[in-house]
Computed example of a mutant assay.
Amino acid sequence: MLDENVPRSVADKLENLGHDVEFVRDVLPVGAVDPLVAAVAEKDDRVLISFDGDFERISPRIPNGQKARFRQLSRIWLRCSEFQASQRVERVMSFIEAEYNIAEESRDGRMLLQIGASYIRSNR
């Protein structure tokens, strides 16, 4: 599930690589609050892809308080420029897919990645 700030080029790249893509704007009103976006992505068992770092506070690896909140939400935080995003996603897709498979088999069950201009980081 792509947040409203993710360009169409990323969706096209993911679709060309065989992934099912849905934009947040296709299922929620424009400007929907982040906790609602996170809840819908989690409910629909989608990986949420966004440039928005606010999801780090909403669904951290080790939550403070509300431990059950968004415990199954997988996220990819794009920390590169929008111009670089589709190319970066394509270049690291094998890593993303491997991390997703690892997450599916883990007790936690979620994948948390950051993709920057020159790095990719997994928070396991």
Score class of each variant (00 low, 15 high):
residue 97 E to T: 05
residue 87 Q to E: 15
residue 73 L to P: 05
residue 28 L to H: 01
residue 98 A to H: 09
residue 30 V to I: 00
residue 94 S to T: 06
residue 102 I to C: 08
residue 43 K to L: 15
residue 36 L to Q: 12
residue 103 A to K: 14
residue 52 D to T: 08
residue 94 S to E: 10
residue 31 G to N: 00
residue 104 E to A: 05
residue 65 G to H: 11
residue 89 V to C: 03
residue 69 R to V: 15
residue 48 L to N: 07
residue 83 F to H: 12
residue 51 F to P: 05
residue 86 S to G: 03
residue 69 R to Y: 06
residue 108 D to E: 15
residue 21 V to N: 08
residue 67 K to V: 14
residue 79 R to T: 13
residue 75 R to D: 03
residue 56 E to Y: 04
residue 61 R to P: 00
residue 24 V to L: 04
residue 40 V to K: 10
residue 93 M to Q: 12
residue 65 G to M: 12
residue 58 I to G: 05
residue 69 R to D: 13
residue 81 S to N: 10
residue 42 E to V: 12
residue 92 V to F: 03
residue 67 K to P: 03
residue 90 E to V: 02
residue 33 V to I: 13
residue 71 R to M: 14
residue 60 P to I: 02
residue 61 R to Q: 12
residue 52 D to L: 06
residue 32 A to C: 04
residue 20 D to E: 10
residue 57 R to C: 02
residue 20 D to F: 07
residue 35 P to K: 12
residue 80 C to N: 14
residue 40 V to L: 10
residue 79 R to K: 14
residue 42 E to S: 00
residue 33 V to D: 06
residue 79 R to E: 14
residue 100 Y to T: 10
residue 76 I to K: 11
residue 29 P to L: 02
residue 58 I to T: 08
residue 90 E to N: 09
residue 95 F to M: 00
residue 42 E to D: 10
residue 83 F to N: 11
residue 72 Q to E: 15
residue 87 Q to I: 07
residue 61 R to G: 02
residue 46 R to M: 03
residue 32 A to W: 01
residue 50 S to Q: 07
residue 42 E to F: 04
residue 107 R to W: 13
residue 29 P to G: 04
residue 69 R to C: 14
residue 67 K to W: 00
residue 43 K to N: 12
residue 30 V to S: 09
residue 30 V to H: 01
residue 57 R to F: 00
residue 79 R to P: 05
residue 32 A to N: 00
residue 57 R to H: 04
residue 32 A to R: 01
residue 74 S to R: 11
residue 22 E to Q: 06
residue 52 D to P: 06
